[in-house]
Design a protein around this nucleic acid. Structure first.
Length: 889
DNA sequence: CCGATGACTTGGTGCAACCCCC
DNA sequence: GGGGGTTGCACCAAGTCATCGG
């Protein structure tokens, strides 16, 4: 791919070539390599520093850009390997040893990279720096990076549309429902979708987008949006025709699930109209119901169609590109590219302390009841009984599958002849009560006691918290082994309630540098399952998932690490690259909406849906997983054709989150969907000729490295970029932040990122309403006082009958104005709260929005980055902090 | 070609820390 | 200072996608 890329406008190139990318951090490789540098101490993240540091950086606001923080660290550099000694200073330096590992790296490679940035980088990584001069050259400019090239960007049009998605979830309590609605008016209930006006920026109603290129629209409920005519696009880049070929044949296999499923709906369904009523109050769990409907197991047969074999050139292409890439890499070795994918080497030296295990089980001796009588359990039996008991107040207790799975596993521990012969006669309440008391006790501890406990824990864990990767100290993500428990699958997971057994050292495989000391096994007398030295992967350890033994649980570095940051950056660069191809891709799939070849037509329609609605790819799932779908696995029943050209989607996506959206589509798409549904049963696959492998193989022909999920990143980021640039006005920081939140929300809606409505949401809203009413009354009184004051009369008494102070009319006017401001603010807050009650903003911020868009916007508009990114996001996005203020996605 | 892995990203939840107002 | 609400973050489940191996 490298190759290809090059052709295009530069921007893209970053991947390979550039070394410069700049800012970033990734340098590690090289720099790091230089072992010497490592000075552990340096790196320690002290929070304080953090702030301090950034201060300049971020705040620097505008002017800043250039100023990059500089290599702050450099100082150390100088040193040579002095390892330890120096560093020692800081107390904690966990890793002491700076050591050893160092050696390895070859000096050569490194050279380059370094990055300036850091600033933001928060503390953590500091890399060594040194280098700078030496090579200095290059990078310095750092900033430049990406930005520039963009010329190309397209503008896309946006459409705004969207709307909401989620429906209200029902509450369990019947009651609640009732009240809820009363207020009703508030539209709260309205599906989000409907709520906001579509176009943020401006247009309203819709439509304005031009050609439709727009971004995805998701609309919730009924809203429909506009239309599109794609024709407009201009095909710039490559003709996609080829696409056709790719397609492939094969029919997909029907997965049959035997189970009937009931679906869990996270929310109740909603018909469009329903609007409101939402029931938010209902605990999620309960919301369910909806039976799902149809579930037919059709099994068998999807109609088999014959496959057509089409040639697939695609594959080859892929291969080829890959290879190319590889080579290029090598060649450039000098530069070191940041890694990059492929099975390439991910690190040179890796030192860490392994993982930490949960403490062994301590029996509490509280006896549960069976048929009303106390039963004695062995510690192992009691441990599992306790896992169940503590979940007595969760919604899992309403799920038969959960109880059944639990019972099966627990019964194995009890043995066939145990007194306890069935779950129905068990009473776990004594254990539950005991547990609640423990919780309460913990809560009652003084803050002193809590602090001590916390410190103890930190002391125990500190050495596990860090790893040294190529000489750079990096935070480890999840170094704690998962404790035993009952599996909490989401949705109607067939395995919920099963016992997740305790993981022991003999279950764990450690991955560490060849020359690094193998972490000592923390449990005396036991040993690791295996120790590997594989530098083509980034995991530090893994064990087999006890629930699904063929799957693994990995220990990786934290999100703030360079390794993760680098791949994050690559992800966004790939999405930006899509910008250069999107028009031709859209033109191509539009053309294929009516092509004869069914496979091609399905690919075209699926791609359209992924692009327009930001749907996930939709891999096949096993029967022992929750029954959820994505684009390629949509069932006939998940899409309803509503004349003249609207499609209503209603399905359970990832995490069994319901996606409900009615959208207007182009007529050819509408017709194609109808054809795909023809002659099939409700539970048959809508795209029977397609699966994610075929779809992605096709996408790769259109753009190197393109896969379905890139569209989500692309559409999310471009939406943010456009909304920010169109919506931001001069004004106060608070207003700008609102613009940001609004854009963030739009993206969350597009991606269908939901959260459960808080149980107290309704109460909170009515409290706010009351408060606003109170303030309005205050204003009324003030107005009366104002009149009186103007006439020289004293003010009225207050509600307690006390005489109020005499104020001048001007003073009263001022008070009225202040109160009005307060009311306005409260009303605004209330609206925001209502709008966001079921929308999760965090997910898109963490995973879909290119942080450089945010950082550049903050710089351009003098918004402190800390107002948008919290501490962990700042650390995670350290690589984006020195972006040029003019950066556009 | 295809299913099985394997590795890594994406996602919602729940609890604790924190914040803010009375 | 207390408690209700918010935020941060750990946790771990659930996706995506590439590669492997037959």
């Amino acid at each position: 791919m490298a190759v290809e890329a090059s052709t295009k406008p530069n921007l893209v190139n970053n991947f390979d070539d550039d070394d410069d990318d700049g800012p970033v951090v990734f340098k590690r490789s090289n720099a790091a390599s230089r072992q010497n540098q490592v000075n552990p101490e340096v790196r320690k993240p002290s929070p304080s520093t953090f702030n301090g540091q950034n201060s300049n950086a971020q705040k620097g606001k505008t002017p800043v850009p250039s100023s990059r923080p500089l290599p702050v660290k450099s100082p150390l550099v100088s040193l040579k390997p002095s390892t330890s000694s120096a560093k020692a200073s800081p107390v904690r330096s966990p890793l002491k040893s700076p050591v050893a590992y160092s050696k390895a790296s070859s000096p050569l490679d490194d050279r380059l990279k370094r990055s300036p940035l850091q600033n933001a980088s928060i503390a953590v990584k500091e890399e060594v720096s040194l280098i700078k001069d030496s090579n200095g050259l290059i990078d310095d400019d750092e900033d430049s990076e990406d930005d520039k090239p963009l010329s190309a960007r397209l503008k896309g049009n946006i459409n705004n549309a969207n709307k909401g998605i989620k429906t209200p979830k029902p509450d369990a309590s019947p009651v609640s429902k009732v009240n809820v609605k009363s207020p009703e008016d508030s539209d709260d209930e309205v599906p989000l979708s409907s709520r906001f006006p579509k176009s943020y920026g401006g247009t309203s109603g819709g439509k304005p987008f031009g050609s439709d290129e727009k971004k995805p629209l998701a609309n919730g409920g009924s809203i429909i949006k506009d239309k599109q005519q794609k024709s407009t696009f201009v095909p710039v880049k490559r003709p996609l025709d080829k696409a056709s070929s790719s397609a492939l044949s094969s029919a997909k296999k029907p997965k049959i699930s035997g189970t009937t499923t009931e679906v869990k709906v996270k929310q109740v369904t909603v018909k469009p109209e329903q609007k409101a009523d939402d029931d938010d109050h209902i605990p999620i769990a309960q919301r369910i119901k909806k039976a799902n409907t149809l579930v037919i197991k059709s099994s068998t047969m999807k109609t088999t169609k014959v496959t057509k074999s089409v040639s697939s050139s695609s594959k080859k292409i892929n291969k080829k590109s890959k290879k190319v890439m590889k080579n290029s890499k090598y060649s450039k070795s000098t530069k070191m590219l940041p890694s990059s994918g492929d099975g390439q080497k991910k690190w040179t030296t890796l030192v860490h302390s392994g993982v930490i295990f949960p403490p062994p089980y301590t029996p509490h001796g509280v006896k549960m009841l069976y048929k009303g009588k106390e039963v004695s359990l062995t510690p192992a039996q009691e441990e599992v009984a306790t896992m169940f008991a503590v979940m007595l107040d969760t919604d899992y207790m309403q799920k038969d599958k959960f109880k059944e799975n639990f019972w099966n596993d627990w019964r194995k521990l009890l043995g066939k002849n145990h007194v306890i012969q069935n779950l129905d006669n068990c009473d776990f309440k004594p254990i539950y009560k005991w547990h609640q008391e423990q919780k309460e006790k913990k809560k009652q501890m003084t803050s002193e006691e809590k602090k001590v406990l916390k410190e103890d824990k930190l002391k125990q864990e500190e050495k596990f918290m860090w790893a040294i990767v190529d000489g750079v100290k990096e935070k480890v993500g999840n170094f704690r082994v998962e404790p035993p428990g009952l599996f909490r699958g989401r949705g109607e997971h067939p395995k919920m309630g099963k016992l997740k057994k305790r993981i022991r050292p003999c279950d764990i495989t450690i991955n560490i540098g060849k020359d690094a000391p193998v972490p000592e096994c923390p449990i005396p007398g036991e040993s690791w399952k295996e120790v590997k030295h594989d530098n083509t992967v980034t995991w530090l350890a893994f064990w087999n998932d006890p629930i699904n033994p063929k799957e693994f649980k990995y220990v990786f570095l934290a999100a703030s690490s360079s390794l993760k940051g680098q791949s994050d950056k690559e992800k966004y660069e790939k999405a930006r690259k899509l910008k250069d191809y999107i028009q031709s891709i859209r033109t191509a799939y539009t053309k294929d909406f009516t092509v004869k070849d069914i496979t091609r037509r399905q690919i075209a329609v699926a791609t359209y849906l992924i692009d327009k609605l930001a749907l996930r790819a939709g891999n096949e799932k096993d029967d022992d997983e929750a029954d959820t779908v994505g684009c390629c696995t949509l069932k006939v029943s998940n899409v309803e054709c509503i004349p003249p050209n609207n499609l209503k989607f209603d399905f359970l996506g990832k995490d069994s989150i319901q996606y409900v959206n009615t959208v207007e589509v182009e007529l050819p798409v509408y017709k194609a969907i109808g054809q795909f549904q023809g002659g099939k049963k409700q539970n048959d696959d809508l795209f029977d000729k397609l699966d994610t492998a075929k779809l992605n193989a096709h996408l790769k022909e259109l753009m190197p490295g393109l896969t379905a999920k890139v569209f989500r990143t692309f559409n999310a980021s471009i939406t943010l970029d456009e909304m920010l640039s169109k919506g931001t006005k001069q004004g106060e920081v608070a207003e700008k932040i609102l613009v940001y939140q609004h854009a963030n929300k739009e993206v969350a809606i597009i991606c269908n990122h939901q959260r459960t409505v808080s149980k107290t949401h309704g109460a909170q809203m009515s409290k706010l309403t009351d408060k606003i009413e109170e303030l309005k009354d205050v204003i009324k009184d003030l107005k009366i006082d104002l009149d009186r004051a103007k006439k020289g009369k004293p003010p009225l008494k207050d509600s307690d009958g006390k005489q109020k102070r005499n104020l001048t009319p001007e003073a009263i006017d001022k008070k009225i104005a202040q109160t009005n401001v307060k009311i306005e603010k409260m009303e605004r807050d209330m609206k925001t709260k209502e709008d966001l009650k079921s929308v999760a903003l965090g997910t898109s911020k963490i995973n879909y929005l290119d942080p450089r868009i945010t950082v550049a916007w903050c710089k351009r508009h003098d918004v402190p980055i800390e107002k948008i990114f919290n501490k962990s996001l700042l650390a995670k996005f350290a690589w984006a902090m020195d972006v040029d203020p003019e950066f556009r996605f």
